[in-house]
């Protein structure tokens, strides 16, 4: 067993904490329009869930994400953001003009949708980056 902090208390606490953290992260993401919060915070929370797993269960954690995957993910997260911009251009609006999204909705409803999409992108990016950095910091030279 290669668990840095593998004690029963930690294991148990962690098992109950992680789902809450993740749900809270999603809540912060979705609720960002109404109260302080948004993609950055949500991303950090989601990443913490992964990092916590790694801290408690060590490198053999089941719920794990490799640094390589994480940085690719971070890129793709930002790509959601930029991609939405490109899509709005293709749909005939200006860059990042959410009103151009071709759904049969009023601009006032389209805009929150656009905000949500980019917040998702931000969340994924932040999560990916934090995990990737954590991975890079804890990685040993022989893992490369």
């Amino acid at each position: 067993m290669n668990r840095p902090f593998g004690t029963t208390i930690l294991d148990t606490a962690f098992r109950y904490m992680v789902p809450f953290i993740m749900v809270y992260g999603v809540y912060v993401l979705l609720h960002g329009e109404y109260s302080p919060g948004g993609g950055f915070q949500a991303g950090a929370l989601l990443a913490i869930a992964v990092v916590l797993t790694r801290l408690v269960q060590g490198r053999e954690a089941v719920f794990d994400m490799k640094g390589d995957t994480a940085i690719i993910l971070a890129g793709l997260g930002t790509l959601i953001y930029a991609g939405l911009g490109v899509l709005t251009v293709i749909w005939g609006g200006n860059f990042l003009d959410y009103a151009a999204i071709p759904l049969d909705l009023h601009a006032k409803e389209l805009r929150p949708l656009g905000i949500l999409v980019i917040e998702v992108g931000v969340t994924i990016c932040v999560m990916g980056v934090i995990i990737a950095i954590y991975d890079a910091l804890t990685r040993k030279d022989d893992d490369i």
């Binding site: 390589d68 940085i71 690719i72 890129g75 793709l76 930002t78 790509l79 930029a82 991609g83 911009g85 490109v86 251009v89 200006n94 860059f95």
Partner: peptide, 15 residues
């Protein structure tokens, strides 16, 4: 905007 955004998008997919 394309001038700026094309390299940016390419950077994001580069990894």
């Amino acid at each position: 905007v394309l001038t700026v955004i094309i390299p940016l998008i390419a950077a994001l997919v580069a990894p």
